[in-house]
Design a protein around this nucleic acid. Structure first.
Lengths: 93, 93
DNA sequence: CGGCGCACTTGCATTTTGCAAGTGTGTCCG
DNA sequence: CGGACACACTTGCAAAATGCAAGTGCGCCG
């Protein structure tokens, strides 16, 4: 399996890279991600579980039933790829 | 819609980036892509149509019922993003 | 102790993906 | 001339992913 295929296995699913992009700005709570990205709640829950299992992000308990999601080092390492893709998507030519 | 979302709209579908990666090495024929990537034939046909419509690649007729697929400039511009993702995917830490 | 906000889960409908088999067409071999 | 073949797909259907809407559990605040 190529390196690219390995990467897509982790962050190739729908919404995954958008979630990571949002977390590049710092930890976010579930409701924030949901409202900012417009992602369906069940998909968000599923992706957060997968990305946590993949070591891309982790859960920070805040209060009782409130927590934040933050990128790990591995997660922050996606910044270059995300910036490159964003740059490409922004060019209309 | 963010730049990243715009990019994923074009190359976010399954197999799309793998097809583009393969074409970075130069034009390839349908059967080559199919065998090299192991992508189902109906998905390959669909993706090639979408990527052509998006201006990422184009069809080069070779002979009778033989053609090659080659990246456009817009397609080659994905190289940086693909390399970045591949690098990320290759790191085990 | 009753209602609220937050972080989810659950139950389907819809869409996407995948497998396997079939189609059309031009070339090659006899 | 005719039949087998390679190539580039298409088609039919099953399985999996995605999406919508409503529901659940649980501390907290009044």
């Amino acid at each position: 399996m190529s390196d690219l295929a390995a990467a897509l296995d982790v962050v190739g699913a729908r919404w995954a890279l958008l979630i990571v992009e949002r977390l590049l700005d710092g930890p976010q709570r579930y409701g924030d991600l949901q409202r900012d990205l417009g992602v369906p709640t069940n998909m968000l829950a599923t992706r957060l579980r997968e990305l946590e299992a993949a070591g891309v992000l982790l859960r920070l308990p805040l209060r009782h039933n409130t927590r934040a999601y933050a990128l790990t080092d591995r997660g922050f390492a996606l910044r270059e790829a995300i910036v490159a893709l964003g740059t490409w998507g922004g060019k209309d030519t």
